[in-house]
């Protein structure tokens, strides 16, 4: 049922695996997920590739208990909106004990399995986030 086909996922591999996004050299806005057009500067913008560190903080989070098809075995799992240090925001799963979840906490990226298409289907990988030891 999930529509993330092999070619679709293959196209996104660089940004999903390596946290490659973009930034506009004209206004210094960072985009992750990558955007080819800066909506502020439009044709005056100069958008180039930018690799994010993946470090940031939790703006808000939830724990998904009723999961969509394909994620049932993972439930419950935490998802947060992470504000990356460069200013872009991204939704990501947050691994680790739920008790440590709190808004404002610092996170760093970890490479993890996102889901499996089926028992004999392909495995989708990508970045999740883990709360920094210190915070």
């Amino acid at each position: 049922m999930h529509t993330s086909s092999v070619p679709l996922y293959w196209r996104l591999q660089k940004s999903k695996y390596g946290l490659f996004g973009t930034k506009c050299l004209s206004c210094n806005t960072h985009f992750y997920p990558p955007k080819p057009l800066c909506s502020e500067c439009r044709r005056k913008g100069r958008v180039v590739e930018h690799q994010f560190s993946g470090k940031g903080k939790i703006l808000t989070f939830t724990i998904i208990r009723t999961a969509p098809e394909g994620f049932e075995k993972q439930a419950p799992y935490a998802i947060g909106i992470i504000e990356l240090d460069e200013g872009a925001k991204i939704a990501g799963q947050i691994v680790g004990p739920f008790e440590r979840l709190a808004t404002g906490k610092r996170v760093r990226p970890v490479f993890r399995k996102i889901y499996e298409d089926s028992d004999d289907g392909i495995i989708h990988y990508g970045m999740k986030f883990v709360i920094d030891g210190k915070s």
Binding site: L59, T60, T62, I64, T66, A67, P68, A91, I114, H124
Partner: peptide, 21 residues
């Protein structure tokens, strides 16, 4: 679909993120 649904984010989840915030 590529950046929210793909990580298992549901509609209840999206509104829950807004609710907590």
């Amino acid at each position: 679909q590529e950046w929210e649904s793909h990580i298992g984010l549901t509609f209840a989840g999206l509104y829950a993120l807004m609710a907590r915030y």
